[in-house]
Nucleic acid binder design. Structure first.
Lengths: 175, 175
DNA sequence: GGCTCCATGTAAGGAGTTACATGATTCA
DNA sequence: TGAATCATGTAACTCCTTACATGGAGCC
């Protein structure tokens, strides 16, 4: 199971019956970047999950509009538990981060542009932090505490980044 | 330019002339996870960079062994600067993190397994932190300060994760 | 009647993954 | 002489990306 498949399965499990469109919206509105959540990724992933027997599509109406409402099967719930529990050894380390990658080669920029780089990284981080803090808790989610825990993690992540950017400014040669 | 292409270009720029094999080793030994650094990724990426005119392969010997030593061209250096500076708005936010993703659905696990999950996440994080701290500064790198800054970022990232895991334990329903 | 959402697809393309293959060289 | 390392490739596959297409429902 891919990360995307696992995450989709989790969304369907945690928010009861919902359409593929609604699943996609969850990803689009997530304050975590990296999920492109394009139709070309979500719908095929759902098809695969249906193929595995982890998701069932009940021909139901969500409101007035037509659309297949998705539900997790018993095997799907088992698969979700397995996916969560089977942590690879590599998970838990520092994930790839485009800013950190670029800092390795910051010496290629003239000093003025180095500071400009760090400034724009800081701006982005502050914007991201505001988005995370302003993110409303989805009332459809089964376990609000889990959602809160995840959002807290994202916030702490970005806060750590802000502190780090300050440190990098200090490490810059010449002040 | 892909993240991988940019990173490869940066490695070649920062460590002078070196073989594709050596580039690959840098990625494999990086304490940052997420770079698979398989031959099937690195060599085609190098080929592409040569195609763009960013990298030149000088038919030279590295030591006694044969192998094409890679160097960055003038256009390559320009491209590297551009790649570093052109930060997308999305960069700087919280990157996708497999642990955080899973925490969203931690409610699917029975309470005992929730704690086991957090324990193994913590173990992985501590191991990663030790690897980062024990990582030797590559003497071939042009700018040791940049390397140190990057490693510091990885360490701060994992430290923030450890604090977060503690918080999540507290958020768990029932203690 | 037109604009915005909801809702689902699909086609083309690229890039990375896994896995294997091949040789030369160093070293014990 | 055999194992480990250096060094480069390639073939098959999968998944994700970008981009486009379609149609119905709600609303002002």
């Amino acid at each position: 199971m891919t990360e995307l498949e696992g995450a989709v399965l989790g969304v369907v499990w945690s928010r009861g019956p919902l359409t593929g469109y609604a699943v996609r919206q969850r990803f689009q509105r997530s304050p975590t970047v990296g999920w492109s959540a394009s139709e070309g990724a979500i719908y095929p992933a759902i098809e695969r999950l249906i193929g595995y027997g982890f998701i069932r599509s009940v021909e139901e109406m969500t409101g007035r509009r037509s659309g297949r409402a998705l539900t997790v099967t018993a095997e799907g719930e088992e698969a979700l538990r397995f996916w969560i529990s089977s942590l690879a050894d590599s998970m838990g380390g520092a994930p790839v981060d485009p800013i950190r990658t670029r800092v390795n080669y910051l010496g290629a920029l003239p000093p003025v542009e180095r500071r400009a780089f760090l400034d724009s990284a800081e701006r982005n981080a502050r914007a991201a932090l505001a988005a995370i803090r302003g993110h409303d808790i989805d009332p459809k989610h089964k376990d609000p505490w889990a959602l809160k825990a995840s959002l807290l993690g994202a916030a702490m992540d970005v806060e750590a980044r802000l502190k780090w950017i300050d440190e990098v400014r200090r490490l810059l040669p010449g002040g």
